Amino acid sequence: MVKVVFIIDSLRRHVTQRFLAHLVRGLHDLGYEQSVITLNSASFPNIEQALFSAGCAITRIGKYSLLLGGFGWWRLVVALKQLKPEAVMTMLDFADTLGRPAARLAGCRALVTSIRARNLAKPSWQRWFDRKTISWADKVVFNSRHIVSYGCQNEGVRNEQVVVIPNGVEDLRTRTGALRSQYRQQLGLPPETLLFGSVAGLNRQKNLALLLRAAKKLPAHWPWRILLVGDGPERARLLALGQGLGLSDRLILLGERDDVEGWLAAMDIFVHTAKFEGMPNAVMEAMAMGLPVVASAVDGTRELIEDGVSGYLLPPGDVDAFAERIHGLIEDPEAAHRLGERAHHKVLERFGLSRMIQAYDHLFRSLVTPESA
C-alpha cells in the first residue's frame, strides 16, 4: 500500500478538483491510502463526496491570510507530520508555493509538484519563491508537453525532474441521449435550436468575449443560443458585452455547476477560446461526449486536436476565424457529426482515464520503492 497526501488550494468545483477526484478514485482501486489537505475551507459537496467515497480523508487548514501569516503554514507542517505520507503531491498555485517547504520540513520521503498551465498571473514574489523551491521536488508533473519548456525556462525545472502525464477522461457519450433531452428541456429549447458554448471559468485567460463577438457575426435568423457554464470575475463584463452586442436573448450564463456532463450533452458545438492552457479538461470532456470542438491553437489543445480531423484549431484571438468555423458547422451538421465522431475516438484512444491512473501509479511507486521503477 502506498500512502499519498495531496495538497490543493481548495475543493471548489473547478477542473483541477475534478481531476483530483478522478485520480483519487483510480488510485483507491489500486489499494492506495490517500488524504487531501485543502488550504482554503471553501469546498463543494460533490467534490468532497467523491473523495470520501474513495476512502480519502480531508484536512482543512484555513484561509490564505492565515497561511501567509505563518500560523496556517505551520498547521500544514503539523498535519503532514501526523499523516506521515510516503509521497506528497501539490497542485495549484498556493499549494505549490506553501506545500513544497512544508513537505520538506515535515520530512516527507517523496515530493511531487505540478505545473498545469503557464502561470502568467503569479505575482513577482511568488514567481521568485517558486523558482527557489522547485528544486526541492523529486518530480514535476506537466499535463502537456507543450508547457515543459515554459516550466524549465520560467520556473527553474530541471530536465531530470520532468514527467509528462496528460489528463485522462472517461467515455461520456454512453449517457448522451437521455441527458441531452433532459437538459435542453431545462433551458426550454425547442429541438431545432442549435446550442454552442463552453465550460470555463469566466476570467481573462479564457477570453470568452471572443466567443460573443464571433457569435455576433452569425446569421441572426438562425435559431441558435450561446451557453456558458462557469463563473468568475468576468461575468458582469460578459453580460454587459452581450447586451451591447444585442445578444442578451441568446446568451445563457449558468454559473458554476457540478453537473457539467449534462450541459455538455445539451450542446451541439463546443468552443474553447483560451489565450493559454495546460491540458484543458473541458475540451477533453467535450470530445469524450462526441462534440465537434472549435478551439484556440494553444498549448495542450494542440495535443488533443488534429486540425480539420478531430476538431478545429484557430489562431488565438481571431474572431473572424471562430465565426467562420462555427458558421460552417451549423450549416453542415453531417460534417459536424463526423468531426465529433473522430474527436470521441481520438480522445479515448490516447487520453483514457485508465492511462492517466496507471502513469501516476508508476510515478508514486517509483519514488517510494525505487527498485520498482
Results as ranks from 00 to 15, higher is better:
Leu238Val: 09
Ser10Gln: 04
Leu208Ser: 08
Asn46Phe: 10
His146Met: 13
Arg158Leu: 10
Val2Trp: 05
Gly55Gln: 11
Leu264Cys: 00
Phe322Asp: 08
Leu195Val: 12
Val141Ala: 12
Phe71Glu: 11
Pro292Met: 01
Asp130Cys: 05
Arg13Thr: 01
Pro166Ile: 01
Tyr64Lys: 02
Val271Met: 13
Val271Phe: 05
Ser43Trp: 00
Met279Ile: 02
Glu306Met: 09
Asp96Ala: 00
Leu264Phe: 10
Ser181Arg: 15
Ala50Ser: 15
Ala373Met: 03
Glu306Gln: 12
Tyr150Leu: 06
Gly262Val: 04
Gly26Trp: 07
Arg60His: 13
Gly72Ala: 09
Leu195Phe: 05
Glu86Asp: 13
Ala335Tyr: 00
Glu324Leu: 11
Arg12Gly: 15
Leu20Asn: 05
Gly177Arg: 14
Gly188Tyr: 10
Arg235His: 07
Arg109Ile: 04
Asn167Trp: 07
Ala321Cys: 09
Leu76Ala: 01
Arg237Lys: 09
Leu348Lys: 07
Arg225Thr: 12
Gly177Leu: 14
Asp259Trp: 07
Ser53Ile: 05
Ser181Gly: 15
Leu211Val: 00
Leu172Thr: 06
His344Ile: 00
Phe276Thr: 08
Lys206Glu: 06
Leu247Thr: 10
Ile165Trp: 01
Ser124Arg: 14
Ile47Leu: 03
Arg237Met: 11
Leu348Ser: 00
Val5Phe: 03
Val148Ile: 13
Ser53Asp: 15
Gln34Asn: 11
Gly69Trp: 09
Glu306Pro: 00
Gln182Ser: 12
Leu30Arg: 15
Leu251Tyr: 15
Ile357Trp: 12
Phe52Trp: 12
Ser372Glu: 12
Asn154Lys: 14
Leu39Val: 09
Pro233Thr: 04
Ser41Glu: 14
Ser149Val: 11
Arg173Ser: 13
Glu334Gln: 15
Leu212Asp: 07
Glu306Ile: 14
Leu76Gln: 00
Trp128Cys: 05
Leu353Thr: 04
His221Val: 06
Ile8Glu: 05
Pro101Cys: 09
Val319Phe: 03
Val4Ala: 03
Ser372Val: 12
Arg350Phe: 14
Val15Met: 02
Gln161Val: 00
Gln186Val: 08
Arg12Ser: 08
Ala265Met: 08
His221Phe: 00
Phe19Ala: 02
Ala236Ile: 06
Val298Asp: 08
Gln34Val: 06
Ser114Phe: 03
Glu277Asn: 07
Gly328Asn: 12
Asp138Gly: 10
Asn203Tyr: 00
Glu160Ser: 06
Gly311Gln: 06
Asn119Asp: 09
Cys152Leu: 13
Pro370Thr: 14
Arg365Trp: 10
Asp231Met: 01
Lys3His: 15
Thr16Asn: 02
